[in-house]
Simulated scan of single mutants.
Amino acid sequence: MRRYFGWKGLSLIIKLESINDLEVLLHNTNDMCKQQYETLVKLAEEIEDEEAKQQFYDFSSDNFILYEDTLPRINKYSILINLWTHLEYSVFQLANEAISELRLNAVNVRGQGFNDYLNFLRDNVEKNLVSSEKEEEIEILRVIRNRIVHSNGFVDRENKAKQQVDAIKYVESNELLSFSEDDRIIMSNYFVEECLDLASEIIEEIHNEIYKSGE
């Protein structure tokens, strides 16, 4: 990322730092869960009596599941939800900044939601803003986020509604995504990291296009 100065630069830095905070949360939580899981394994290995060892595994089974699956999944789900909210609101803020900076005739941003805000910027700032490839990646992020919000990450293969069909299609065609045995979406850390990078790139691209005349 280039260096930015003044209040315009500070505005961008604040937007990007919020995404950086989510990345820190991802890695710190993963590290904590890995450490706790390895501690449980080490404790089990130190038990010489096989019957006692099995009792330990039985007694600690919930904790094994907690650190290996539950907490990492909840953390990644939460990060994706927060990321989408932050991206959508940041683009909304940038659209309003464009009205002021470029002295557009518009009084306010038309519509609601990411696509409306992006289309407003394309109509008033730069028609080629955000590549089609990035827009496809944004759609995957949106669809996965919606499944997390509306069904806790589960998909219904019997339901032929577009949102269900799209979610299944995106997961099955992405090597960074998969399904559990009960059809819950599993996200790799790399997928979350790619989504974080994508959001940062889009916010920075839009900011630079709005303020390029002042560089």
Rank of each mutant, 00 (worst) to 15 (best):
R2I: 12
Y4C: 09
W7Q: 10
I14W: 12
K15P: 00
I19D: 02
N20D: 15
E23S: 12
L26P: 06
T29S: 04
T39P: 00
T39C: 05
V41T: 06
L43M: 13
L43T: 04
L43K: 08
A44T: 00
E45F: 06
D49L: 11
E50A: 14
E50H: 06
F56S: 07
Y57N: 01
F59K: 11
S60R: 09
D62I: 01
N63T: 01
F64E: 01
F64R: 00
F64W: 00
Y67F: 10
Y67L: 02
T70S: 05
T70E: 10
I74N: 04
N75R: 02
S78L: 08
I81G: 03
T85E: 12
Y89S: 07
V91E: 03
F92A: 08
Q93E: 15
L94P: 07
N96I: 02
E97H: 14
S100A: 05
E101L: 10
L102K: 14
N105M: 10
N105F: 14
V107L: 10
N108P: 00
R110F: 06
G113P: 05
F114D: 03
N115A: 13
Y117C: 05
L118S: 08
N119K: 12
N128M: 09
N128A: 10
L129K: 07
S132I: 11
S132F: 00
K134F: 08
E136T: 03
I138F: 00
I144P: 00
R145S: 02
V149Q: 08
H150K: 10
H150V: 13
H150M: 12
N152D: 14
N152S: 15
N152G: 09
G153K: 02
G153H: 07
F154H: 14
R157I: 12
A161I: 03
A161D: 09
Q164K: 02
Q164P: 01
V165N: 06
V165F: 07
I168T: 09
I168A: 04
I168E: 13
E172H: 02
S173A: 12
N174D: 15
E175S: 14
L176E: 10
S178D: 15
S178N: 13
D182R: 08
D183Y: 12
R184A: 11
I185C: 01
I185D: 03
I185H: 04
I186V: 15
I186W: 05
N189T: 10
Y190D: 13
V192L: 01
V192E: 04
E194N: 11
D197P: 00
S200N: 06
S200G: 09
N208C: 08
I210V: 13
Y211F: 15
Y211W: 11
G214A: 14
